[in-house]
Write a protein that binds this DNA or RNA. Structure first.
Lengths: 189, 189
DNA sequence: GATTCGATCGGAGGGATAGTTA
DNA sequence: TCTAACTATCCCTCCGATCGAA
């Protein structure tokens, strides 16, 4: 992700072309510039449902007849989601925050359709995930919200590394990962 | 002015539509979006207008007699050194210091044998380059020495961006680059 | 008590610019 | 004295460990 500085008027122009709540600047601009656009409205994307949706749904169910499928699907998840993680990019990050965001971005890419479940993960009084910067900021003091790259979600970032790892574990579980995989994901941080 | 976050690819797309040195993101975007655009190409580039820019031109005059050799070198250099610079890695750096070190590392890789000439480049009382951290630290206060990656050399890092550019120019010249190439190198920062 | 959670605050990095020197 | 070059202080932002609160 890159930050660019633009003038007020141009900013307003972009904002006015938002097509769904939480749409990122990238997404809006890509549409305006007629470029390929990955980001879709979180709920209605058919493509995402077909793509990654099945795996997570299967994973999360406790239904007997799906167990066989579950094992297989789990493999796929490992192949997909872990491929989304660019190890080099990860290693290059200066601190835990950078890695944290990269990992969450990978999880989002692999589970865009289900990702809003993370919204239920929160602390005693602070929100940990939300669709807007404001929601996080309002839920505590100095929460340091950061946008999960290429996603419409924001995370609370003002915590120690241990808690960030806990958050990753919770996210992984919420998305239906086995404990072993959740552990692997946590350890990426 | 507003800051917006955009993805890497979109950023590259915008950069590629730059029409003059120093053009702002707003200006480029406005052109791409067919909006009114105030910013025009400056008569002189921004860099040239900076007071320090003039100094390095003056400083260069002492290397006149090297011109013949310089021209020949230039061909080789373009093939070697610019290949050493990983543009993506460069772009990913958070600040000027990271890029500075990366560029110097590339120059070192291309000129390891002669690189110790940079040792002659220094400020009024501070050293700019040395073989040890201590040498730099001792030559001034808060010089913030940093090792040039994968090299035995250290650089002084506590300076503004303009000076870092000057340092690059001087290094390039000391290594025998033509002024045009030195300029290209400086502009990598 | 023991444990979890929050957010303050110290530390590090970066670099513009005020201030100093030649 | 005046100016240009150079220095390094100081302010800003980012991080995240630590310690107080719940």
């Amino acid at each position: 992700m890159k930050n660019i500085e633009i003038d007020e008027e141009l900013y307003q122009y972009i904002v006015q072309h938002t097509q769904f709540i939480g749409e990122s600047a990238s997404s809006i601009l890509r549409r305006l510039l007629s470029l390929e656009n990955e980001q879709q409205p979180p709920i209605f994307s058919v493509e995402q449902l077909l793509d990654k949706g099945v795996a997570s749904v299967v994973d999360r169910t406790s239904s007997d007849q799906l167990i066989g499928a579950k094992v297989v699907e789990t493999q796929d998840i490992n192949e997909t989601v872990f491929n989304y993680v660019n190890k080099e990019e990860l290693a290059m990050q200066r601190g835990a925050v950078g890695r944290f965001l990269l990992i969450l971005a990978a999880l989002y890419r692999g589970h865009a359709a289900q990702f809003s479940v993370v919204t239920e993960i929160s602390g005693r009084d602070r929100l940990y995930f939300a669709n807007t910067e404001q929601a996080l900021a309002a839920s505590g003091s100095s929460t340091k919200p950061r946008q999960i790259p290429d996603s419409p979600f924001w995370v609370m970032t003002n915590s120690n590394t241990t808690r960030k790892k806990m958050m990753l574990t919770k996210v992984a579980n919420a998305l239906g990962y086995s404990d072993e995989d959740a552990e692997k994901i946590r350890e990426l941080l």
